[in-house]
C-alpha cells in the first residue's frame, strides 16, 4: 500500500515517493517495461496537476491506486485493440475450477521472508508474469499490494465473490509455478 506522505506534497515529493510505486504496480500488471513507463508517465502527470486538490493525507493513497489501475487497464485495452489481439477478456475458466489439486511435497522454507533474496524475488516476479491477466490483476493488488478485496472489486468492477475466487485460483496457480523452486529446498 501507499504509505501516507510525510510532509506537504510537492511535485518533487510525488516524483520521488510515488513514481516508483506507480511503476511497480504497472510493471507487474502489464508485464513489460515500455507499457509500465507509459502508464507511470500518465499517472504522474495526473497526480502532479491535481496536487492542489489533495490535503496530503492518505486520501491520495487510495486515489493513486485507483488511477494507476485504471491507466493500466486502459493501456492494455488500447494495446489489444491496436494489435487486434484477443483482448484481455476475463475468462474465469482459464485456470480451471480450483480442484482437485496435485499433492506436491512439503516446501522447505525459512521461518521469515520479510526480506526476499533477489533470486527468489526474480522467480516470483516471473511466475506473476505467467498468470493470465484477469488473475494477475487481482493477485498483484491483493497479495503484492495488500489491498482489501472489496476495494479491488470496486477498482476492477468485480463482485467480492469474483475477487475471492480469482485470487484463490491465482494463488493455487502461483503455488504450482513456485513449487519446483521451493519444494524440498532449504532456503533459510
Amino acid at each position: 500500500m501507499f504509505d501516507p506522505p510525510p510532509e506537504k506534497l510537492t511535485p518533487e515529493i510525488v516524483f520521488r515517493e510515488y513514481a516508483p510505486r506507480i511503476y511497480n504496480i504497472a510493471r507487474r500488471m502489464l508485464g513489460n517495461d515500455a507499457d509500465a513507463e507509459d502508464v507511470t508517465q500518465d499517472v504522474l502527470l495526473q497526480v502532479v496537476r491535481k496536487l492542489d486538490t489533495f490535503r496530503g493525507d492518505s486520501q491520495i493513497a487510495t486515489w493513486l491506486h485507483r488511477v494507476t489501475v485504471n491507466a493500466a487497464l486502459a493501456h492494455r485495452q488500447k494495446r489489444a485493440n491496436r494489435q487486434k489481439h484477443e483482448s484481455a477478456e476475463a475468462d474465469d475458466d482459464v485456470l480451471g475450477s480450483g480442484g482437485p489439486v496435485t499433492p506436491g511435497k512439503r516446501w522447505e522454507v525459512g521461518p521469515e521472508e520479510s526480506v526476499l533474496a533477489a533470486e527468489q524475488a526474480a522467480i516470483i516476479e516471473k511466475a506473476i508474469e505467467q498468470l493470465p491477466e484477469p488473475f494477475r490483476d487481482v493477485y498483484v493488488l491483493a497479495d503484492v499490494e495488500g489491498l482489501p478485496n472489496n476495494e479491488i472489486g470496486e477498482m476492477l468492477g468485480l463482485s467480492l465473490a469474483a475477487v475471492k475466487s480469482r485470487l484463490h485460483r491465482a494463488r493455487l496457480r502461483m503455488r504450482d509455478l513456485l513449487a519446483p523452486h521451493f519444494e524440498g529446498k532449504v532456503t533459510s
Partner: peptide
C-alpha cells in the same frame, strides 16, 4: 497439510516483494 503450508507461503512471499523498486 502440505497444501495449506505451500498456499500460506505463496501469500507470504508475495507480500514480501518490494513495492518500490527504483525506476530504470
Amino acid at each position: 497439510g502440505t497444501l495449506v503450508h505451500a498456499y500460506t507461503h505463496t501469500v507470504r512471499v508475495a507480500r514480501a516483494l518490494p513495492k518500490c523498486n527504483p525506476l530504470p
